[in-house]
Amino acid sequence: MQSALVLQAVTSPRLRWLWLTPLVLLSALIAGTAIGETRIPVETVLKVLANRLWGAGYPVDRIDEGIVWSYRLSRAIVAASCGAGLALAGVVLQALLRNPLAEPFLMGISAGASTGAVAVTVAGIGAGAITLSMGAFAGATLAFGLVVMLAHAATGGAGGGRGLQAAGAIILSGIAGSQLFNALTAFIIAKSANAEQARGIMFWLLGNLSGVRWEDVVLAVPAAVGGLLVCLWHMRALDAFTFGADSAASLGIAVRPVRGILIATTALVTAVMVSMVGAIGFVGLVIPHAMRFIVGSRHARLVPASALAGAVFLIGSDILSRILVPGQVLPIGVITSLIGAPAFALILIRGTGAR
Rank of each mutant, 00 (worst) to 15 (best):
S110D: 01
A111S: 11
G112R: 06
G112P: 04
A113G: 12
A113T: 10
S114Q: 13
S114M: 08
T115G: 11
T115N: 13
A117C: 05
A117D: 04
V118D: 04
V118W: 08
V120E: 01
T121E: 14
V122W: 04
A123F: 10
G124D: 12
I125D: 10
A127T: 13
A127H: 15
A127M: 15
G128T: 05
G128Y: 04
A129T: 14
A129R: 13
A129Y: 14
I130L: 15
T131L: 02
L132A: 10
G135A: 05
A136F: 08
F137D: 05
A138T: 14
G139M: 09
G139V: 09
T141V: 15
T141E: 13
L142Q: 04
L142R: 04
A143W: 04
A143R: 03
F144P: 07
F144C: 11
F144N: 13
F144Y: 15
G145A: 07
G145F: 06
M149G: 13
L150T: 15
L150H: 09
A151D: 04
A151W: 04
H152Y: 15
A153C: 11
T155L: 01
G156D: 03
G157M: 11
A158I: 02
A158S: 02
G159T: 01
G160I: 08
G161K: 09
G163V: 13
G163H: 13
G163W: 09
A166R: 14
G168R: 14
I171L: 10
I171S: 03
L172P: 05
I175S: 13
G177L: 01
Q179S: 14
Q179F: 11
Q179A: 15
L180T: 03
N182C: 04
A183T: 12
L184N: 05
T185Q: 03
T185E: 03
A186G: 02
F187I: 10
I188F: 06
I189P: 03
A190R: 13
A190H: 11
K191M: 14
K191V: 13
S192I: 09
S192G: 08
A193Y: 03
A193F: 06
A193I: 06
N194G: 14
E196L: 15
R199P: 04
R199K: 12
G200W: 02
W204T: 07
W204D: 08
W204E: 06
W204K: 07
L206A: 08
G207F: 00
S210L: 00
V212S: 01
V212D: 01
V212M: 00
V212F: 01
E215Q: 13
E215G: 13
E215T: 12
P222G: 03
A223G: 07
A224D: 01
A224C: 01
G226C: 04
G226A: 05
G226F: 04
G227H: 08
L229H: 07
V230H: 11
V230L: 12
C231Y: 06
